[in-house]
């Protein structure tokens, strides 16, 4: 069994199982934990609060006008590389085949040249956000191992992917094997680090929006 077969075989299976166990474990855990009782008098109806929750998912995903000058760099960087990642992950032909083979359908792909442009841009932005994290005194103070390791795990997948398409660093199979292995690592780490934000981000924003509206504050 060579590296590719190991990476897309047993290693992928273990990572796949750990990913689903981990994600559900943490989600159920958070949902079932006791939440603080709302002590204030409800100002708005439950229906309005639910709408507020939906609104919260949007409004909290956009820079607050008052702080826009201070936060816009970080937000722009963050949004850009997320979009880049999604395009590369979802529309590169081999990725479509990979995810497609697991979910049982395939969708259209983008030409490789476009994918390459996006992945190079994304990697550049990735380096930019890391240097910002290290260079910014407050951000650096707030960062822990989790932040750096989560960055590393995603960057590794991106770098090995680019290496595989560009044929650098070794025979294609080896690099492809490393690329899939780094994706396995990403799946393993996903539920236990800050990557889990993908599952938390919108529910928490919705809950905040709901509670704020219920208390009569703008969501």
């Amino acid at each position: 069994m060579d590296l590719v077969d190991f990476a897309r075989g047993p290693a992928l299976k273990v990572a796949f199982v750990v990913f689903f166990i981990g994600v559900l474990w943490r989600l159920v855990n958070v949902i079932l934990l006791r939440h603080g009782r709302m002590l204030s008098e409800p100002r708005r109806s439950v229906g309005a609060a639910l709408l507020g929750g939906i609104k919260g998912m949007g409004s909290r995903s956009w820079p607050h006008p008052e702080f826009i000058k201070r936060t816009v760099t970080g937000e722009a960087l963050g949004y850009s590389y997320h979009i880049g990642l999604f395009i590369v992950i979802l529309f590169f032909a081999p990725h479509v085949i990979f995810f497609g083979s697991l979910v049982g359908m395939r969708w259209s792909t983008l030409p490789n040249s476009i994918i390459t442009i996006f992945s190079v841009i994304t990697l550049t932005l990735f380096v930019a956000v890391l240097s910002r994290r290290v260079g910014h005194p407050v951000l650096r103070h707030l960062s822990n191992f989790d932040d750096y390791f989560s960055w590393f795990v995603v960057a590794l997948v991106l770098i090995t992917g680019l290496m595989a398409t560009a044929h650098v660093g070794g025979p294609y199979q080896t690099i492809l094997g490393l690329h899939i292995l780094s994706f396995d690592l990403l799946l393993l780490w996903y539920p236990f680090g800050k990557l889990m934000h993908a599952f938390y981000i919108f529910p928490t924003r919705a809950i905040d929006g709901y509670l704020m509206t219920r208390k009569g504050a703008p969501s």
Binding site: F16, V17, W25, R26
Partner: peptide, 14 residues
């Protein structure tokens, strides 16, 4: 497999 893993995860969480 994903379903079984998810159920196991949910049980552990609960």
């Amino acid at each position: 497999l994903a379903g079984v893993a998810a159920l196991a995860g949910a049980a552990i969480g609960a």
